[in-house]
Amino acid sequence: MMLNNSNGQVIKVGIAQMDVVKLPNTIRTSGLGSCVGVILYDESKKIAGLIHVMLPDSSLGRQESINVAKFADTSVAAMIDLLKLEGVQKFKLKAKIAGGAQMFQFTSDKDSMRIGPRNVEAVKFELKRHGIPLVAEDTGGNSGRTIEFSPATSTLHIRTVNQGVSEI
């Protein structure tokens, strides 16, 4: 565990999933590679949501019923709705994001090889579209990341294998 929240629990979010966190808990997702972890938070209400985005665009999907948490374009809107249910107003929301690495260097022109940067671009586009300011980011590179967000302090802790823990 990265954060020392003695009386809270850590809410774990899997790949292509999302969830909401309130005090005194923290929220975490692990092993982000090309995926992007998106935190939407309300500083005053101390409520936050975490999305583990896997793909940029749901129109690329070929499923009849889609998992909204999987795509950048559907998950941000869905998370805003979830947070509204908790009484959060959209204009109070801020964002922090991490991930979007390129784990393997290939000279392939296949689009899936550039999925990390494309996910980051798509998430930023969505945040802009919804008027949510992006306060901090740790994106790109070629390392996996595990992230944990504390709504108490609005800090995002990021752990990588070689660079240890940082905060944004």
């Binding site: 092993g31 590679g33 090309s34 896997m54 899936s112 999925i115 070629n142 996996g144 294998v161």
Partner: peptide
Amino acid sequence: SVDMFGAIISIGLIELSH
């Protein structure tokens, strides 16, 4: 790559995840 298993394997899930 020497890294977290999740970060490594997820690249193989991209095609499928569509």
